[in-house]
Design a protein around this nucleic acid. Structure first.
Length: 448
RNA sequence: GACCCUAUGGUCUAGCGGUUAGGACAUCUCCCUUUCACGGAGAUAGCCCGGGUUCGAUUCCCGGUAGGGUCGCCA
């Protein structure tokens, strides 16, 4: 039988990075085994559920490229879905829960108590066979000893998470439950319920949690806790996916950067690590830089234009070829796209502001005659391409008896406003002779 | 308070009784270079502690300690 796994998030308005990793591991296992990846929305808490909150989840998974074989197609709980085990919103499955409660009630496995319905929990320790952690024997805690039974349905008629989760897993034919380790202890309850229903529980795989860099639990407010923040910060989904794969799982052969398709082939449950991992933003950024550098030019262009637009820099006023050429000079230089506006807006602005500290260093009196020479040399060029520019600049440096760097820094500052940036020769070519001469002129005029 | 899980450099990890404890990120140095980045060479840094078992423990067992999780009419 092919595995059926599921990701069952609660629509809270954001998708936790740990949740995204759980989804990823489920997806990887399904793809590795040729099984089915089900997406189920646990929207039992009416108060905070909304279509928008569901959309955050759907969009997050889509951004990562984690397609689901069964589940909702939109954030609308009553909307279309795919798969024949639906509905895939718990809010639409109430009859199932009702039916299951009655079955337990009628067999004396549950009882009413102060308006709620409680499950008769065994007092014996429960063995949890876990594919990651191994066999775990879970006895009752001291508090549970006092009253081992637990609520299935609240007095207001709402069934609780532990109950609906099990009922849905059962009815949706889930064979492997891959979820965060925070659910390990409660799995005893789930196993007891499955047994009460007379069915074998699914196989469990509890994966370690992702912690903050300081080892604390990553909660909503923490930097990087929301998957959306990576999209907003200009990260690539392939980088995020790759990094997430490496937290709690290892290919064992020192390979780190690898496409998801490669991971699909190698991924399996037994190799999942047992200990929590701290999130290392630096390493993610490194991977991001790797992927960003290898991006095909057209995709880099698309994402770059979007990054500029987001920062209020309108690239549409410029010819596409110009924008593309400008972005080409940035590729391999930046790591995340949100660096782009600060890095290369000079291509798209009429007025550039000079970095004050760089101006103090480069716009010194002795630079002026040198910059004039550079201007004149550039002015004589008939073809204004990188090679000619480089040759002209070097010839000028030789003529003046100075190192090229002496000319380069003031030239860069005059034309871009920054001490750092893309390759100077290439950047000047893109800017074009006219604009370059104008900016050098301006630099000469305004700084001494 | 009880119960469960975990423990290799700052971080992610390889290791599954005998290794000069390997790789990656980060840090530092040098090279390359017009800046930055990339690339190349190198450096610093690690088996939580204590007992066992064993000829021999990072590796197996027990106990501490530390971190994380759970014990809700939250999910």
């Amino acid at each position: 039988m092919k595995p059926r796994v599921r990701f069952a998030p609660s629509p809270t308005g954001y998708l936790h990075i740990g949740g995204a990793r759980t989804a990823l591991f489920n997806w990887l296992y399904a793809r590795h085994t040729g099984g089915t990846f089900v997406l189920r929305i646990e929207d039992t808490d009416d108060a905070r559920n909304s279509q928008e909150a569901v959309d955050v989840i759907l969009n997050g998974l889509r951004w990562l490229g984690l397609d689901w074989d069964e589940g909702p197609l939109t954030g609308d709980a009553t909307g279309p879905s795919k798969g024949d085990r639906g509905p895939y919103f718990q809010s639409q499955r109430k009859e199932n829960y009702q039916r299951r409660v009655e079955a337990l009630l009628s067999r004396g496995l549950a009882y009413e108590h102060e308006g709620a319905i409680k499950f008769k929990m065994t007092r014996e320790p429960i063995l949890i066979p876990d594919l990651v952690v191994g066999d775990v024997l879970r006895p009752l805690t001291d508090r549970e000893e006092v009253d081992p039974d637990w609520v299935l349905v609240r007095s207001d008629g709402q069934p609780v998470f532990h109950f609906v989760n099990v009922v849905d897993d059962l009815e949706m034919g889930i064979t492997h439950v891959i979820r965060g380790e925070d659910h390990l202890s409660n799995t005893a309850k789930h196993i007891a319920l499955f047994k009460a229903f007379g069915v074998e529980p699914p196989k469990y795989a509890h994966i370690p949690l992702i912690l903050n860099a300081d080892g604390s639990k990553m909660s909503k407010r923490d930097k990087g806790a929301s998957l959306t923040s990576y999209l907003d910060d200009g990260f690539l989904p392939e980088a995020v996916n790759n990094y997430l794969c490496l937290l709690g799982w290892s290919p064992k052969d020192n390979l780190e950067k690898m496409p998801l398709a490669e991971v699909v082939g190698r991924f399996d449950l037994p190799q999942i690590l047992r200990h929590n991992a701290k999130f290392d933003y630096e390493k993610l950024t490194w991977l991001q830089g790797e992927y960003c550098r290898d991006l095909p030019g057209d995709r880099f262009y698309e994402l770059g234009v979007h990054a500029f637009a987001k920062a209020g820099v309108d690239t549409n006023k410029f010819p596409i070829a110009y924008v593309k050429a400008a972005l080409d000079t940035c590729k391999g230089k930046i790591k995340t796209f949100n660096e782009l506006p600060a890095y290369a807006s000079f291509y798209f602005r009429d007025e550039i502001a000079y970095d004050p500290e760089a101006a103090r260093k480069s716009f010194v009196p002795e630079s002026k005659p040198r910059l004039e020479k550079v201007r004149d040399a550039f002015g004589r060029l008939s073809t204004f391409d990188a090679a000619s520019i480089e040759a002209a600049l070097k010839a000028t440096a030789a003529e003046l008896g100075v190192k090229v760097g002496v000319l380069i820094h003031p030239t860069r500052l005059a034309t871009t406003g920054h001490p750092h940036g893309p390759s100077l020769y290439h950047l000047l070519e893109v800017l074009g002779k006219e604009k370059v001469l104008r900016r050098i002129e301006k630099g000469l005029g305004s700084c001494w």
